[in-house]
């Protein structure tokens, strides 16, 4: 597959007299293949929006390489801008214009036919409210308008930053369907979101960023598999036997975490070996469940942003791993 979006070693450094030097992007890499829905994940302040803004020419990078549709940026940005639809961060529109005016002005600036405005208004469900001023819209309606503005060009690459923000459950489902439809019709979608369940549901691949560097990338299932760690939950008939079972399993080389009413094992290739090992000790298993890892837990693990009781994590407290340690299938 050909890459629609390529980023290599992207750097952006902010210098401030008060706060010193901060590397918003520290050699960031990303690759998105054509026709995919690609999730772009990262904690707050990790560099997601900086990446998107840099890609779209709003921020000047300090180094690195970027390309969209095979054309080098930012030099070729004016040439490819017509094929890239984007919304960055929260939707912002002139509050006293109607949705139709807003899109009409953009369409005129982009030399697009007027009927395209009606098409995208229909697509995002704003047809009947298109004549109302944007300031009367809810956040979800503004979000729909933002998506409409990004779709107006019928782009080959659609970049959406938090598109589900403010949407009601029905709207989120509609958005999910829309992303799928667009992807099936050949559009490549880059989706930045914190709703990781959604990302897992609709994305073919993901890139996870932390402190300005890529910490994981690849097809969703590969990223999940790479971090599943063979976890198994074990319950015994008698809770009082948990410590004896933990000892036996530890001696057998299994990593064990003791919880109040069960054990969490990791590094287990075959769960059946656990039940056999415990049976040999006269301990009888009442539950033996392989624990499926989800994107949220992988994300929290990779970015080290899982909440810790009694601690208040600060925005920049997340993990940055060496790039040689990244997981995933393709890229770079």
């Amino acid at each position: 597959m050909s890459a629609v979006l390529e980023i290599e070693g992207l750097r952006k450094t902010y210098r401030s007299r008060k706060r010193g030097v901060r590397h918003a992007l520290d050699g960031f890499d990303m690759r998105v293949e054509a026709g995919q829905v690609h999730g772009f994940l990262g904690p707050n302040g990790s560099g997601k929006t900086t990446t998107l803004r840099t890609l779209l020419g709003l921020i000047r990078p300090n180094g690195g390489r970027m390309a969209i549709l095979g054309q080098e940026l930012p030099h070729a940005l004016p040439a490819v801008a017509g094929q890239v639809g984007a919304i960055v961060e929260s939707p912002q529109f002139f509050p006293h214009f109607s949705a139709r005016d807003t899109l009409g002005l953009l369409a005129q600036a982009g030399e697009l036919p007027r009927q395209r405005v009606d098409e995208v208004l229909e697509l995002v469900g704003l047809r009947d409210r298109a004549g109302e001023r944007v300031k009367t819209y809810s956040l979800g309606m503004k979000q729909r308008l933002a998506v409409a503005s990004a779709l107006l060009k019928n782009p080959k690459l659609l970049i959406l930053d938090e598109p589900a923000n403010g949407l009601d459950p029905g709207g989120i489902r509609e958005m999910r369907g829309l992303m799928r439809d667009l992807s099936e019709n050949g559009m490549t979608v880059v989706l930045s979101s914190h709703i990781l369940g959604e990302i897992q549901l609709i994305c073919d691949s993901v890139t996870i960023i932390s402190l300005g560097r890529r910490v994981a990338f690849g097809p969703v299932e590969q990223v999940l598999a790479a971090h599943s760690q063979g976890s198994v939950r074990v319950r015994l008939e008698a809770v009082s036997d948990l410590s004896q079972a933990a000892d036996a399993l530890t001696r057998a080389g299994v990593r064990v975490a003791t919880e109040p009413d069960h054990l969490m094992l990791s590094g287990v290739d075959k769960p059946a070996t656990v039940s056999r090992l415990l049976a040999e000790q006269g301990l009888y298993v009442s539950e033996l469940t392989p624990v499926a890892v989800d994107l949220e837990s992988v994300f929290l693990e990779l970015t080290a942003t899982a909440p810790v009781p009694g601690q208040h994590r600060q925005v920049d407290q997340s993990a940055k791993v060496d790039q040689t340690g990244t997981a995933g299938g393709w890229g770079a």
Binding site: L56, G57, P74, A81, V88, P91, Q92, L106, S149
Partner: peptide
């Protein structure tokens, strides 16, 4: 000024990145 303030300028630059 209002274009900058409301994000209109940014939207426009996404369409016309010059």
């Amino acid at each position: 000024g209002a274009e900058w303030n409301t994000g209109g300028m940014m939207n426009l630059l996404l369409w016309r990145p010059k």
